[in-house]
């Protein structure tokens, strides 16, 4: 299990990458958070790189979570729209109010 396999793994990230990840994740980070996360993410990714040591060349396919259960018919059943709407933070009548998109 020790054969090295080539991968394109990055074992550290820079400030710009952390900022890009935050943007993709819809998180806004303060500058000191970005710096702290850069170090933390790099050390965790370095640990993830230990998987490079495993020979996975003979593995085919992954586990199938659905093999026992399976899907059910899609049947219309009574719902509770009023109750669900009760939890909406901002609404107008029966509409959910969202931030503008354009």
């Amino acid at each position: 299990m020790s054969r090295r396999v080539k991968t394109q793994k990055a074992t550290s990230v820079d400030i710009r990458q952390v900022e890009r990840l935050a943007e993709l994740s819809r998180l806004s980070l303060r500058p000191q958070e970005v710096e702290r996360l850069r170090g933390e993410l790099s050390s965790i990714l370095g640990y993830f790189a230990t998987l490079d040591r495993v020979d996975v060349s003979k593995v085919t396919g992954a586990q199938d979570a659905l093999k026992d259960g399976g899907l059910r018919e899609d049947v219309v059943r009574p719902s509770t729209p009023e109750e669900i709407l009760e939890g909406v933070p901002q609404k107008k009548g029966r509409y959910v109010r969202a931030p503008r998109v354009f």
Partner: peptide, 19 residues
């Protein structure tokens, strides 16, 4: 936040296969 960022990283184009 840390897990969301790392999860986004390991699923992003260029790293998905490797991680």
């Amino acid at each position: 936040k840390r897990r969301i960022l790392l999860g986004t990283f390991v699923l992003s184009a260029g790293y998905y296969e490797a991680y």
